[in-house]
């Protein structure tokens, strides 16, 4: 323990280091051994409004037609934590550290109750956002990165991590066309811009940098998300097929 509550420090790497797909990043959950589980975990990451849900919806339909059992999981969707997190967001009183821990609690709940049981039962788990969103958001708010990686050491390294990469300009156009800018997605709590537009632009630029800085460390498969919905989906399907059915893919190409 140290005397700096805002900048926790740690000496032991958790979620970084040697990464093996389908295994815990760090110290894991000792009472839940997961080795040998037949399911596959696929994470779709990307910043707010980039098009994750759209891609997951299409991917799910395609996988189901192919006969796979699919389970979807998403950020702050744990029945336990969602009301608390929504409340905290609306009242705007939470400290960043408390926020980080609330998100981690939500994630832990979904790990234990949704993700691990689904992997055990052989499902393909599609995760709309994964720990990287949490790492990026906390990272730009100055929370110690090593501490964060230890915190998420109970997460499972996905078999595939797709990162939907976009530039701020494209993102702004997409978000404005779809639904407008939201307080939290604009990082208004950080006071980085005068109005919501400036704030969104500045905050999202920082977030994108933060995501990009994790690409190598966590083996992101970077997908150019500036393209059309169909083009992106084609690429995702190709890569997922090559992973799930390497032989069939080889035959159809050869």
């Amino acid at each position: 323990m140290n005397n700096q509550p805002d900048a926790p420090q740690s000496t032991d790497a958790g979620a970084s280091g040697d990464i093996q797909a389908g295994r815990y990043y760090g110290r894991g959950i000792p009472y839940l051994p997961i080795a040998g589980y037949p399911g596959k975990l696929i994470a779709i990451e990307g910043t707010d409004g980039v098009g994750r849900s759209t891609q997951i919806q299409l991917l799910r339909e395609w996988l189901e037609v192919k006969g796979y059992g699919v389970v979807e999981t998403g950020w702050t969707r744990s029945p336990l934590m969602q009301p608390t997190i929504e409340l905290a967001k609306s009242s705007n009183t939470l400290n960043k550290l408390t926020f980080v821990l609330l998100y981690a609690t939500d994630f832990a709940d979904r790990m234990e109750k949704e993700i691990i049981p689904a992997l055990k039962a052989g499902f393909v788990v599609l995760s709309d956002r994964y720990i990287f969103t949490a790492l990026a958001r906390a990272g730009v708010r100055g929370v110690d990165r090593l501490w964060l990686r230890n915190l998420y050491g109970f997460g499972i390294a996905p078999h595939l991590v797709f990162y939907l990469n976009v530039d701020v300009k494209t993102l702004i156009a997409r978000v404005l066309a779809a639904r407008g800018m939201d307080f939290w997605e604009s990082g208004m709590d950080l006071k980085v811009g005068d109005d919501i537009y400036d704030s969104f632009r500045a905050y999202q630029s920082k977030l994108l940098k933060e995501y990009a800085s994790m690409a190598d460390e966590f083996h992101f498969r970077v997908v150019d998300a500036r393209r059309s919905i169909d083009k992106i989906q084609d690429e995702l399907r190709k890569q997922v097929a090559a992973f799930l059915e390497p032989e069939a893919t080889l035959k159809s190409e050869g």
């Binding site: 509550p5 959950i29 009472y31």
Partner: peptide, 18 residues
């Protein structure tokens, strides 16, 4: 006691004041 990794919990609480 509940089976959580000892080292992980210690690092988790490293934000606390000693």
């Amino acid at each position: 006691t509940r089976g959580v990794d000892r080292q992980w919990v210690r690092e988790l609480y490293s934000f606390a004041v000693r």
